[in-house]
Write a protein that binds this DNA or RNA. Structure first.
Lengths: 293, 293
DNA sequence: CGCTTCCATGAGCGCTGTTCATGGAAGCGG
DNA sequence: CCGCTTCCATGAACAGCGCTCATGGAAGCG
């Protein structure tokens, strides 16, 4: 017997919330309906999907598989709906879930989403901010919680994950320092947690004029603010320095400057969907203010 | 409103058969049910999916998208079902659809499927034979008609297709000739249509002792039979010559012999499914008789 | 001008998925 | 030890959907 989309949504909600009652609340259903639904699903599959206990419901191994694949099914059904409508000249209406690390979200997404919304008013977005460490944003896509991941390239993802993607932006790093500092290069160095690519790290070590970093900051706006207050200098991607305060001066690092490349990753069926193609096209548009090019 | 699995199966059948009534027959439904179902689906999507005429039903652009994505949804739902059952220690029961070219199907599949069926009696298979030209077997996977494609590597598929895969078998070509021939290398050359990779073609041209092919045969068993009857000699992959008649003698071509590599391709979600993993594991087992290693 | 072959439509009916009401089990605090 | 709360389970009843049956209309074909 077939599972229904409603049943899959129940599985998803139960896994997310960790309990039948909480899942019922988020789905605007009765706890009873959730219980019946899960039970029915389990009967259809011939398998127990959740261990129920005092603490709520925890997925069994079978439940984990079901939830994972179920999210894929739901997403694909939405792609079907949105794509079929778009193909017949209708409005493009779907919800795009974007996982990005903070600096990319702040710099890349606003102009792109503005333009995209102008062209397709029915589109809506979920932007989740994920620390770009470990699997980072790509994991969100692999596990079905996001449709598009913004990543730092090169991204050595396990090929078996089967994600597809491309390049969005390639830019050099620049040096920023307080405008009023008499000898900028004598200032202490403030490092940024996201400066973690091996290439960048190697470049840092090769620069003998750079002191070791005395401060390490996770957030780029905090870092900019620190430089503006004269705490030190920093090496950051060009676009991060683009919307700087007047107290911060930018100094190019020349042709040998390290670069950072931002790309995107998504799943093959989504990469073929109209909505995601449109989004990627907009992300490739000019995100950097013209005066900095 | 959600589409149901039954509705997606109707879309698939209508596209396949080209008419509502034929689809109804294959699905064991009434024509009325199919008509109602398609109408309901169209209402849910707000789009016309098929152009109806006396010639039956032809998909509109929107319909094509819907059918394509719908097949993906159905397949993913079956993966969910099979995977969840397998994860809870149950029998692995699903239908695996394999697209292969003839020689690979004949040589690689029988032993692998025998072993796999022994371990998982509930598995069933659809093996479709596709000429390995153009998109070949990979197209079957991309368009959702097969789960696993057996391909000749290297396979330059468009990366946007987002298929994943791996290597299954790497083997040298050998020379075969009639056993009773006094001077085998003076015989005419029989070529095989599937000897089409650029690498193999280049090797052929570089061999000055090889006469140009006078006969070109599409089927490898026919080719073997021709050699057995003394019509000529041929250069074929080792496994093709493995189950030869006694009238055929095999002669290695040495370390410079061209090789053929057979691999598989599948979609990312399927590559994560238990059933397909098991199948690939068996395909990687020793398909070549030990006396030829 | 029937005949056949398409698809469309309305009525009726059974199944499924929901709510409501209720019950049982298990921690938590006095 | 006993309520109180917070989980999930279960049975009854009802609504909507998805099916069949029966019928009708439109268009090619000899």
């Amino acid at each position: 017997m077939d599972l229904t989309a409603a049943e899959l949504r129940v599985l998803d909600a139960v896994e997310r919330t960790g309990s039948f009652s909480a899942a019922a609340a988020t789905l605007d259903l009765t706890q009873s309906a959730v219980s019946h639904s899960v039970r029915m699903t389990e009967r259809k599959l011939g398998t127990v999907l959740f261990d129920r206990g005092r603490h709520g419901a925890r997925p069994t191994p079978a439940g984990e598989r079901a939830v994972l694949h179920g999210r894929g099914v739901l997403r694909l059904m939405d792609v079907l709906r949105a794509d079929a409508r778009a193909a017949s000249g209708g409005e493009l209406d779907t919800r795009l879930r974007i996982a990005a690390f903070r600096s990319a979200a702040a710099q890349l997404l606003p102009p792109a989403l503005t333009r995209l919304t102008a062209r397709h008013p029915q589109l809506s977005y979920d932007v989740s901010i994920v620390r770009d460490v470990g699997g980072g944003t790509a994991t969100e896509v692999v596990e079905g919680r996001a449709d598009l991941a913004i990543v730092n390239l090169p991204h050595r993802l396990p090929a078996s994950a089967g994600l597809v993607g491309g390049e969005l932006l390639d830019e050099p790093y620049v040096l920023i320092h307080p405008t009023r500092s008499p000898d900028p290069r004598s200032l202490p160095l403030i490092d940024w947690t996201e400066n973690c690519s091996t290439e960048t790290q190697a470049w840092f070590r090769a620069q003998d004029w750079l002191p070791p970093a005395t401060i390490n900051v996770a957030d780029d706006t905090v870092l900019l603010s620190m430089v503006a207050h004269g705490l030190g200098m920093a090496v950051v991607p060009e676009t991060t320095a683009a919307d700087r305060a007047p107290e911060v001066t930018v100094e190019p690092l020349g042709p040998t400057a390290p670069r950072r490349t931002i790309g995107y990753l998504t799943t093959p069926p989504l990469s073929r969907s109209t909505a995601l193609r449109e989004l990627v096209a907009e992300l490739r548009g000019p995100p950097v203010p013209l005066d900095r090019r």
